[in-house]
C-alpha cells in the first residue's frame, strides 16, 4: 500500500526461517531426544521417503477418500437446508432448538453409534465427516440468506421480478460467498474428524491410524511426517478454496491477509 514492494513478506519470511533454523540447530546439536521429537530436515526426509516408497499412500488415499465421500453430500444438503432455514422464520422457530443442541454436541461422540450401525468400514468415517461438515455449510448459508434482509428482495419485487428471478438473480448470488466460506470451514472440520475417527478406531487405516501407530512405537519422525502431510493438505485445500471463493464471487468483500 505505502509505495513500492509489499512490506508484508520479508518479516514473516525472516521469522519463519529463524524458527526453523533454531529448531534444526537444536536437532543437529543433539538437544532433542529422537524418541520424543525430531528435526525439520529429518521429518521432511522421512515424509519424502514415505511418499517415494509409497508406504503412506494407501493411508492417505483412504483418509482423503473418506473426506471426499462425506463432504460432497454434506455440502449439498447444507446449502439446500441452509437456504430453507434462512428463508423461513417458521422452520427456524421449530427446528432452532434441535439445531442448537446438535451443534453444541460434539459430533465426534457419535462415532460409537456409527460403528454399531455401519460396522468397522469406510462408512463410519464417511458418516462422521458428513455430519461434521454439514453444520458450517448450513449455518453460513442460512446466515447469508438472513443477511440479505428484506430490502433487496423488495427492490426485486418493485422491478417486477418473478419469484424465480428473485431466487436465481438475487438470493443465490448473494448467498454463494457465504456457502463457499462454509464449505471452506467444512473442509477443515472434515480433516479434523477423519483423523479423530482413525485414531479412535484403529482398524480403519488412514493417516490418523498411521500416526497413532508410529506414536506407539515412539517413531517421532514418522508421527511428525504424518502430521506434516495432513498440515500440507489442510493448508493447500484452505488456500485453494480461498482462491476459488475470490474467483467465483469477486464482488464480495473479504478480510485482509
Amino acid at each position: 500500500m505505502s509505495g513500492g514492494r509489499d512490506p508484508r513478506w520479508p518479516l514473516p519470511l525472516a521469522s519463519g526461517l529463524a524458527l526453523l533454523g533454531v529448531w534444526e540447530a537444536a536437532w543437529r546439536l543433539g538437544w532433542i531426544d529422537p524418541l520424543f521429537f525430531s528435526g525439520p530436515t529429518a521429518v521432511a526426509a522421512v515424509l519424502a521417503r514415505l511418499v517415494a516408497t509409497g508406504e503412506i499412500l494407501p493411508h492417505y488415499a483412504s483418509t482423503m477418500g473418506a473426506v471426499a465421500l462425506g463432504l460432497a453430500p454434506a455440502v449439498a444438503a447444507g446449502i439446500l437446508l441452509g437456504l430453507v432455514y434462512g428463508a423461513s422464520a417458521g422452520v427456524r422457530r421449530v427446528a432452532g432448538p434441535y439445531v442448537a443442541f446438535l451443534n453444541a454436541t460434539p459430533r465426534v461422540a457419535l462415532i460409537g453409534l456409527f460403528v454399531v450401525w455401519l460396522g468397522l468400514g469406510l462408512g463410519v468415517r464417511v458418516a462422521l465427516v458428513a455430519i461434521s461438515a454439514f453444520f458450517p455449510v448450513f449455518f453460513n448459508t442460512a446466515e447469508g440468506v438472513r443477511a440479505l434482509g428484506a430490502s433487496l428482495d423488495r427492490v426485486g419485487r418493485a422491478y417486477g421480478c418473478t419469484r424465480w428471478e428473485r431466487l436465481t438473480r438475487i438470493l443465490l448470488p448473494h448467498t454463494l460467498p457465504y456457502a463457499l466460506t462454509g464449505t471452506r470451514l467444512a473442509v477443515g472440520r472434515s480433516l479434523v474428524v477423519v483423523v479423530i475417527a482413525e485414531i479412535f478406531v484403529g482398524s480403519l487405516g488412514g493417516v490418523g491410524y498411521f500416526i497413532i501407530n508410529a506414536g506407539q512405537q515412539f517413531q517421532s519422525a514418522h508421527v511428525l511426517a504424518g502430521a506434516l502431510l495432513m498440515a500440507l493438505t489442510g493448508v493447500t485445500l484452505t488456500l485453494g478454496l480461498e482462491r476459488v471463493e475470490a474467483w467465483l464471487t469477486p464482488w464480495h468483500p473479504r478480510a485482509g491477509l
Binding site: 514473516p12 521429537f37 477443515g188 479434523v192 506414536g215 495432513m230
Partner: peptide
C-alpha cells in the same frame, strides 16, 4: 500471522499421539 493461519489449517488431532 501467516504461521498462525498455517497452524490453523492443520488438523489438531494429529498432535494427540505426540
Amino acid at each position: 500471522g501467516p504461521y498462525l493461519l498455517l497452524a490453523y489449517a492443520t488438523p489438531a488431532p494429529v498432535f494427540v499421539p505426540l
